[in-house]
């Protein structure tokens, strides 16, 4: 089992501001995003990003939340008791032991995207581990229209992991390899990941290279996501959050299909939810929340 699972692994890390003295800060707000696959903790001091971490979610949400915040606060001298207000979000949001409030990840992603990519962002796509969200928001990052699909693995990070396992290719290489083909193949015809797996095996048997299969799978996924986005309407500017934003095999094909470029941000696309939660915590602090 172990060597099969390695293919979907990605790197965990944490970051904190090298110069900021948090003890001078008036407001210390935190956002914790406990997703189905990854967990992030992020701390804002007076509305500025002070520290964050990006880890894999363990089998239990409270432990994952504790791990994430401890990793983020490592070597900063800050402790959980110093957090004045904490908002939990994501799949495990109600199980964050030190959170003051839980807010849905839809609202948090829109708010986070607004901070990361600027107030001109109107369309946010979040492709998470087990869901896919299409969000339309206003200039303040307030949600105006959204839909989420968390019922079906097609179009989620999990669907990509299944393909990585099947073809024995590390998940981070999928995007680049999918462009190493002589010509772009037709997308796989099956929507369902289970059926796509048998289709992929059939294509390999009939002589397709792994890269061709990846290209066909990435373009099918991009097409599926573009249909989902179509339901809420894609309006410039467009921003992608979540782990899949790191897969150019999907992003470039999606941009082509939509005829619109996604805004690039200096921030890690996976922290959008935690950042949004932290920003809500900060706003609530300013409003005098206890």
């Amino acid at each position: 089992m172990a060597e099969i699972q390695e293919y979907w692994r990605w790197t965990e890390y944490s970051w904190h501001h090298p110069e900021m003295d948090w003890r001078q800060g008036k407001r210390i707000a935190a956002g914790i995003d406990v997703g189905s696959v990854s967990s992030q903790a992020l701390v804002l001091v007076d509305g500025q990003i002070f520290a964050f971490s990006n880890l894999r979610t363990g089998s239990n949400s409270p432990d994952s939340a504790n791990n994430a915040i401890k990793t983020a606060l490592k070597d900063t001298g800050m402790e959980i008791k110093d957090l004045q207000y904490t908002v939990g979000t994501g799949y495990g949001r109600v199980n964050v032991p030190f959170a003051n409030r839980a807010i849905t990840e839809i609202a948090c992603h829109a708010r986070g995207a607004n901070f990361m990519a600027g107030p001109k962002v109107r369309t946010v796509l979040d492709m998470g581990g087990q869901d896919c969200k299409a969000i339309h928001c206003d200039e303040r990052g307030k949600v105006t229209n959204f839909l989420m699909n968390d019922k079906c693995a097609a179009g989620t990070g999990r669907g990509m992991e299944v393909m990585a396992d099947l073809l024995s290719i590390p998940i981070k290489d999928i995007g680049d390899l999918s462009f190493q083909v002589d010509e772009e193949p037709q997308p796989v015809s099956s929507t369902c990941v289970v059926f796509a797996k048998s289709e992929a095996l059939g294509l390999m048997r009939s002589g397709w290279s792994k890269n061709m299969v990846l290209a066909a799978y990435c373009s099918a996924m991009a097409h599926r996501v573009s249909l989902l986005l179509g339901r809420i309407g894609v309006e410039d500017q467009f921003f992608i959050t979540g782990g899949i934003a790191k897969n150019p095999g999907i992003v470039k094909r999606l941009e082509q299909e939509l005829g619109i470029q996604a805004v690039k941000s200096q921030h890690d696309s996976q922290i959008a939810g935690a950042l949004g939660a932290g920003l809500f915590a900060d706003t609530l602090l300013q409003k005098g929340a206890q």
Binding site: Q130, K151, C152, A153, R158, C192, V193, V194
Partner: peptide, 14 residues
Amino acid sequence: STQTIPMNAQCTVF
């Protein structure tokens, strides 16, 4: 089985 546990996931993969 002695009890019915509804499954959250509808999708085979999940």
